[in-house]
């Protein structure tokens, strides 16, 4: 069983379209994981039915007992996240859950409340099971939620004897990205051939290198900036990073989303894109199969 994580650095590069399309091509031989818990869109691309719903609790948040509070201002002074106003109102959106206010209130006027920060689900889709989540807006600890959905996806893949886990990762290079990459078998980096797309990919590649995960690149919207595309290909060639496919800027990607379909379902509309998609997947599978057997 191998986990492939699809990331991009920059948002909007096409991660979700590729992750969904790849899962379609496995022929129900994959568990899908949506690790973009801020903006989980994978389930929108397919008819999915929630089978199991679980609550996600983040770090407990502080609550002030106004009867005990003397407004001494100690908590305001100690809070480094500007989450407590001078009249001792706690802004739970800004609170990072460090509990300094709770621990050091001289009147013991602050208690902690465990509150749900979101939900995570196991769903059924035409392409196999999907583990996804919804983090409440402003929710803390997205990294933890990402590891929960990935762990659950792994257990499910083991139980159901699937050969692949395909994980749709979040944009960026921060905590939720690190959380979606650690321990993965392979990374597929989707990059759009734009000045900003390449810039952001280079940043996320540094992270992938540091974590020492084998990777391949998929160039999307390659015809938006042909010069950027060829210099990117040259650079990747020098670094020995395989390019598994090149895709044009084509409205079919939007059309597929509107029709709740994956790119491989759009064969009639854009047969050549369909073919490149299949080739990219086969290339990816051959690269992934060369990676040392995952013992866990």
């Amino acid at each position: 069983m191998k986990e492939i994580v699809v990331i991009s650095g920059k948002g909007g590069a096409g991660k979700t379209s590729f992750a969904a399309g790849f899962s379609r091509l496995t022929g129900k031989n994959a568990v899908l994981v949506d690790a973009d818990v801020d903006a989980a869109d994978l389930s929108l691309l397919m008819d999915s039915k929630i089978l199991k719903k679980n609550e996600f609790k983040g770090l407990p948040t502080p609550v002030v007992d106004m009867d005990k509070c003397t407004k001494c201002g100690k908590c305001v002074e100690l809070c480094r996240f500007d989450a407590i106003s001078p009249d001792i109102k706690i802004d739970t959106l800004l609170c990072e859950g460090c509990q300094v206010c709770y621990n050091f209130c001289p009147e013991e006027a602050i208690s902690l409340k465990e509150c749900p920060m979101g939900e995570w689900y196991v769903s059924e889709t035409p392409y196999g099971p999907l583990v996804h989540a919804k983090l409440d807006p402003g929710g803390e600890n997205s990294g933890l939620l990402v590891s929960i959905v990935r762990k659950s996806g792994k257990a499910l893949a083991r139980d159901m004897k699937k050969d692949f886990i395909i994980t749709d990762g979040p944009p960026g290079i921060g905590c939720s990205v690190i959380s979606s990459l650690t321990g993965a078998d392979f990374v597929c980096v989707v990059v759009e051939a734009t000045v900003s797309g390449v810039h952001d990919m280079e940043r996320v590649m540094e992270l992938v290198d540091f974590l020492d995960i084998p990777s391949a690149v998929l160039i999307n919207k390659y015809d938006l900036n042909l010069a950027a595309c060829s210099s990117l290909e040259e650079k990747l060639g020098q670094q020995g990073i395989p390019v598994i496919g090149k895709f044009p800027y084509d409205e079919v990607f939007y059309r597929a989303i509107l029709q709740k379909k994956t790119i491989p379902d759009m064969k009639d509309v854009t047969p050549y894109i369909h073919d490149s998609f299949e080739k990219a997947w086969n290339h990816l599978v051959s690269l992934v199969s060369k990676v040392g057997q995952n013992l866990s």
Partner: peptide, 29 residues
Amino acid sequence: PGTTCPTVTAVSNTDYCILVTEPTPFGLN
């Protein structure tokens, strides 16, 4: 992008927030 702590920190205490989206199911969600 997103809706968690980094985004909240950037938007907090601003006078107005412009939300940019696209007319797709992803954009809407």
